[in-house]
Computed example of a mutant assay.
Amino acid sequence: MRHELIIFDNDGVLVDSEPLSNRILAGYLTELGHPTSYEDSLRDYMGGAVHRVHDLILERTGRRLPEDFDDVFHERVFTAFRRELEPVAGVPEMLEKLAAEGVPYCVASSGSHERIRVGHWKTGLDRWFGEDTVFSAQDVGRGKPAPDLFLHAAERMGVTPERCVVVEDSPLGVQAALAAGMDVYGFTAMTPADRLDGANGYFDDMEQLLGLLA
């Protein structure tokens, strides 16, 4: 394997959370007087940290979201996660193989540490990720598409950016990986390849990932 570290996005790559969280986000924004469809939410916010929602709403409407927006949104998401969340198909088997082969990997997510923990606990992925291999946009000043989060993860894992490969399913994540000087593979199960422009390769089934990484 030519890469020394695999950096996974979390939402939509490891856990099947994008449909749940974007449905909830679209509903909550609409409830607050900012009409947003599920498709709008995927287009504008998928892969980004929650501050992106605040920034875009303020830019577009001149109105700020309520101070408790993050708390209410996260509680709704966590409730849905605890009830419905599943791992992305093929992920447990893929992680099992990587662990057995001793391949270094970590997760770098726009979500909060709590969101990552809740999702991994519900899906059973916590067995493959210790605290020292989980990185959140909370850890850096700027989330994706800035490269900060991926560079932070690489530094903490002791690997130079050019020896890392990122696995992403959002345009913002692909942009962040490229800005960090890393290779990136686009997961197209939810996002068409043409929206992940610049990726080094594409796949739509986790069984295909190990072949790309080899």
Rank of each mutant, 00 (worst) to 15 (best):
Y185Q: 10
Q175K: 15
F69G: 07
A189F: 05
H120Y: 08
G201E: 12
V15Y: 01
R23K: 05
P87K: 02
V174M: 11
T79Q: 01
I24P: 00
E131H: 03
P192V: 14
W121I: 13
W121R: 12
H74Q: 11
R117F: 01
V134A: 05
W121F: 05
G111T: 15
V167S: 06
M190G: 13
A199P: 13
V77Q: 03
I6V: 14
L56M: 10
E39P: 09
C106M: 07
M190V: 15
P161R: 02
I7C: 02
R23N: 06
N22L: 05
T191D: 11
Y45K: 08
I7S: 00
N200Q: 14
F73L: 11
E155L: 02
K122G: 06
F187W: 03
C164F: 02
F203I: 15
L172Y: 02
D139R: 10
F150L: 11
F73K: 08
Q208Y: 02
L25Y: 00
A99D: 10
R60P: 09
V50G: 02
L196F: 01
Q175S: 14
L14M: 08
S112P: 13
F8A: 01
L212H: 13
S17E: 05
A179E: 12
P87F: 00
I116L: 03
D194N: 15
E86V: 10
F129D: 07
F73P: 04
A176W: 01
N10H: 12
L32F: 00
F150R: 08
E162R: 15
Q175Y: 04
A99V: 12
H3C: 03
A108E: 11
T160K: 06
Q208C: 07
N10V: 08
G130S: 14
V118L: 02
P147V: 06
E59A: 14
D197I: 15
D205G: 09
A49L: 01
G124M: 04
V167R: 07
Y185P: 08
P66K: 05
S110C: 04
G141P: 07
E4C: 01
G102T: 09
Y38V: 15
N22Y: 00
L5Q: 03
P66M: 01
H120C: 11
A137H: 06
R82P: 10
V88P: 08
G33R: 07
L210K: 13
V134E: 05
G48T: 13
Y45C: 07
G130M: 09
E18M: 14
P104N: 05
I6M: 03
A199R: 11
M182T: 14
H152G: 11
M182G: 10
K144G: 08
V140M: 03
A154S: 13
G143Y: 00
L149F: 03
K97A: 14
T133G: 03
A176N: 05
L14P: 09
A154W: 06
